[in-house]
Design a binder for these strands. Structure first.
Lengths: 224, 224, 224, 224
DNA sequence: CATGAATGAGGTTTCATTCAT
DNA sequence: GATGAATGAAACCTCATTCAT
């Protein structure tokens, strides 16, 4: 029942009569559409008919597959976090020396946020709801962001080599790295208006990334 | 119960029946209630009757004073930003040496976010709407966060004294300071669930603030 | 208490503090504004605040002077009919020979409708309400359109002279004259759309008037 | 109670509980009810709940099928004009000699107005709105009342036979015929009150029709 | 597996009107 | 005599959801 390994192909399905395996495809399209919808409009602002239309399906199907709005949101949220976890698994830092590895790590986080604006939207929405849906997903809460483990190892290596100072909490470091990227992108609209600077302009994006990595490096570096 | 001749001021009015025919007071209560409502539930999730009840007024009065939901939100947003600006005016850093002044600045920002969770909620909501309401408020967009000016002066002083390195963009510095505080508090719910650590616990709050200021100090410090 | 003959002048009353005799002036402005409002939007569609604004007064004053919406409409309607009656009094046909007098009469009716679109709007609205307000105004129903009397005399003279045929009901004649003008103007919007001809174009207005008078003349003429 | 296999047709369904899940029937009942409601109360005065009740449906269904009040009105208006056009197609004048044909035409128009008071109410309402809804219906504006074509042919035949005079504009003639009928019926309430004559009394209705046709005949007749 | 029809409940907003100086 | 503040009732409309095939 896994996704990979089937050979039906994704193409040639436009207006054609529904065929075998379409159930899963429909479900997938709905999930994708709902992800966008929730990310853009929040939970209360999301509209079932927009999801249905974007998924080239019907509102009825949304209920058929997901039960109700809240459950749909939970499914979307789980998929989003799972997606992040999967991406995190692709990060391999062990072959790099600690400082470069940390740079690489920062780049990964920044890139992920930059390329997954829907993730930011969903997380913001979930925080508005005090993480109530997340708490209902045991598989997610038990996972304890394995990415922090990466940082832990990395910091230890740096300390041993004498390039990083001791006593840095990997969780705090992770939060700092996330904060610098997330805040900038999540709040770019209001910040741009208030600061009078277009934060989404490519130049400023780059500059921010550079400043952020420097800040992180200086934070961990021994004997500045 | 008449309007003239009392000197109670605006405070100490909780649960007491609202003074009737006091436009300013009624408007104020509605604005305060709406601030909480929008911060907690977002624009789409906010409910007019909850606002009315919390303001010990009627739904009708909300429309009487603010026209419609969107305008009410705009009024709330404007008041929130104005409130921040006013608080910023109370920050005086000129008498402190640069490093201490920077610490003080960080403490101010952190405290403001900590003590004004509604501000975070409103800003998040406004970002969901791509700052569309903010852009309609000329008075706010024209203001160009004067607080950045404070940082600018502070950095210059530090550079002259040789304690800060040159070439730091005050706007970027401001964003970093804001990011470290805002992100932590705005996302504490999901982060707590995912990281398996109660970020709102007093100890962790303090630790985060300490780590943040250190990060900022190391970022600007010359010759580390 | 008549309008003419006072020397306060109509000018110089813009933003100035209210003075003596302003009560009557305010009432008058409200009545005029309400006339336009009811004519343009009907009874149900009329809005108190639009009336107030157009009258440079307040909604409160509307109720102060007229009690409620329905009474205001009645006042408007009475004023409109009284206005028509007064205009009718200015029609003098006795010095003209019958055919010319009839032409003159037709011209008067046509002109009145053309120059008083609000009258048409009000009458249409009143018919929607099955003349219920009109019936409540004894002064109007008792009047029995004196203008029909004019036609009666005119027809008699024509018959005596041998230019008009006998047996024509003056009321029917009046209705016909009114119909040709009223219908054309009252329905010009829908007719223009459906017939593909701009009925309000000056050329077509004139042509219609010419055709109408000819129709009326041919109707009464003896021995065609 | 299933949908398939019955042959009752659309008629004879009054007071009986509405057949459920019959979209066409439900839509039809709502349209019919709305026609009456708009005709009687105008656009602003029409009430959604009255429509729902009269249609033995729910207010919700009105929005389900028609979107909103304005669209419902447009649908009603379109149906009303389409109904008129269909009736016009049943008029065949070619077999009659011109004068009789013209009489027949007048009778048709008169009868239509007499038997479709809702049409008059709707058209009046649409004129209040300056035909704004009609203009949004391309199918209606493009039709250019084909009935005028009938009059055109009829006039030509009469001229050739020498019974009608030349130079009569068929559109003007149509307007005159419509005016004499429409005005009388649309304004019967106010006219009855003002003229002191019950225009809806059968005798007066007949008399008006006779006077109207005579007027039309005399208008077109050659050599009176 | 899929769907068109239907709906209860409640949301936002408007309206005409009155209160209390 | 005049007015700003207030309001109950109801209007229109939307939303998430279920029914019945």
């Amino acid at each position: 029942m896994t996704k990979g390994g089937n050979a039906t192909g994704a193409g040639a399905r436009r207006g054609a009569p529904p065929r075998r395996r379409d159930a899963e495809a429909t479900r997938g399209r709905i999930l994708a559409a709902a992800t966008q919808e929730f990310a853009r409009h929040g939970l209360a602002g999301a509209r079932g008919d927009r999801v249905a239309r974007a998924a080239r399906s019907s509102e009825r199907m949304v209920y058929y597959y997901f039960g109700n709005k809240e459950k749909l949101f939970r499914a979307v949220l789980e998929a989003a976090y799972l997606s992040l976890l999967q991406a995190e698994r692709s990060v391999h830092l062990d072959d790099l020396e600690p400082a470069s590895a940390l740079d690489e790590f920062c780049r990964f986080v920044w890139r992920y946020y930059l390329e997954h604006p829907e993730f930011i939207g969903l997380v913001n929405t979930e925080n508005l709801h005090r993480a109530s849906h997340l708490k209902q997903s045991p598989q997610l809460t038990q996972l304890v962001a394995p990415i922090v483990g990466l940082l832990h190892g990395l910091l230890e290596r740096g300390v041993k080599l004498g390039t990083f100072r001791a006593g840095i909490d990997p969780t705090e470091l992770y939060i700092a790295i996330a904060a610098l990227g997330y805040f900038y992108l999540a709040n770019s609209a209001t910040l741009s208006a208030v600061l009078g600077r277009e934060l989404r302009a490519p130049g400023h994006l780059d500059e921010h990334w550079r400043a952020s990595t420097e800040m992180i490096q200086r934070f961990v570096r021994a004997r500045l």
